[in-house]
Every structure is written in structure tokens, then in C-alpha cells.
């Protein structure tokens, strides 16, 4: 009985190791905001394929679901992928806020040109879809538009 147990333990450990994609990375995305006019901003940080189809949502700042439609690139991309945008939500963001979040992605997707995108919306001001677009494997830091100063991925 004893050797058998040992073998199955080893097999189990192997199987577990296989379940985690062997070539995957845990990355940190750092989104720095500039001056936010008026009230606080809603921000969506998400991963898409090169065409904008949402693959994963990393973080959404701003909890009121009824304002999420203003994060237009994110809503659009999620609609294209026919997956519901899951709501990884936190508080809406003010001026100078730095949003840090981690996500995991397979190497082959990085090689396929998957992107980290950031959308912003501020009440009474412009909704900015694609305020920043960072192509993984190519950029580590890009300048943003509107209220997004820059986005970095390490």
C-alpha cells in the first residue's frame, strides 16, 4: 500500500503543476492619473486581443453599475467577446491617483500581441475609450490621453 500512495502523490503533484499554464507570467499594471476635472473618475483596466475583444478585466474603479456604460471601449469589447464584463471593482479615482493591479497571462497570448487597455469616464466630461493602449511584449510604458498620464506594465 505504501509505495502506491507515494506514487499517486507524485502523480497528483505533477498533474497540479500541469494545470497551471506552464508558460504564464504574473504582471503588474500601474496606471497613473493626472488631474481629474470635477468629480471622481471611473476607470476600466482590461486585457484584449489585438482587435479589442476583452480577454480579462483587471480592475474597474467606480462602483455604480449604471455609469459603467461610459467606459465604452471596455463595454464594447466585452460585448464583442460575448462574455459578461466581470466587475473587479474598487472606489472611483481622484486626481493623481495611481492604480496598481496584478494579472496573470500566458506567454503565447503575450506573443500574440494582446493589449492592456484603459478607459476613463468623468461626469460632464469626455468619455475616453482607449485612453491608453499598451501592447504586451512590445511596450512596458505608454503615455495616456485625457486624464491618464501613463500606463506601465512590469
Amino acid at each position: 500500500m505504501k509505495p502506491l500512495t507515494k506514487t499517486s502523490l507524485v502523480a497528483g503533484a505533477l498533474a497540479l503543476a500541469m494545470a497551471v499554464p506552464a508558460q504564464a507570467k504574473t504582471l503588474t499594471v500601474i496606471t497613473s492619473l493626472g488631474a481629474v476635472p470635477g468629480p471622481r473618475a471611473y476607470v476600466a483596466i482590461y486585457v484584449t486581443d489585438p482587435k479589442g475583444k476583452v480577454y480579462d478585466t483587471i480592475h474597474v474603479a467606480g462602483r455604480e453599475a449604471k455609469y459603467h456604460q461610459h467606459l465604452r471601449g471596455w463595454v464594447r469589447g466585452a460585448r464583442k467577446s460575448r462574455t459578461k464584463p466581470h466587475s473587479v471593482t474598487g472606489a472611483s479615482a481622484g486626481s493623481g491617483k495611481v492604480l496598481k493591479a496584478q494579472f496573470e497571462i500566458a506567454d503565447n497570448l503575450i506573443a500574440a500581441g494582446y493589449q492592456v487597455r484603459v478607459d476613463t469616464a468623468v461626469e460632464n466630461f469626455a468619455d475616453v475609450p482607449k485612453a491608453a493602449v499598451l501592447t504586451l511584449g512590445k511596450d512596458t510604458s505608454v503615455r495616456g490621453r485625457g486624464i491618464v498620464r501613463k500606463v506601465e506594465v512590469h
Binding site: 493626472g34 468623468v122 460632464n124 466630461f125 469626455a126 490621453r145
Partner: peptide, 11 residues
């Protein structure tokens, strides 16, 4: 009309 010009928002 809302605009974003020279790093500032305005209406």
C-alpha cells in the same frame, strides 16, 4: 461643446 486641449478639459 466639451473639449480636451493642451492637457485640459473645458466646455
Amino acid at each position: 461643446a466639451d473639449f480636451f486641449h493642451a492637457d485640459t478639459f473645458g466646455s
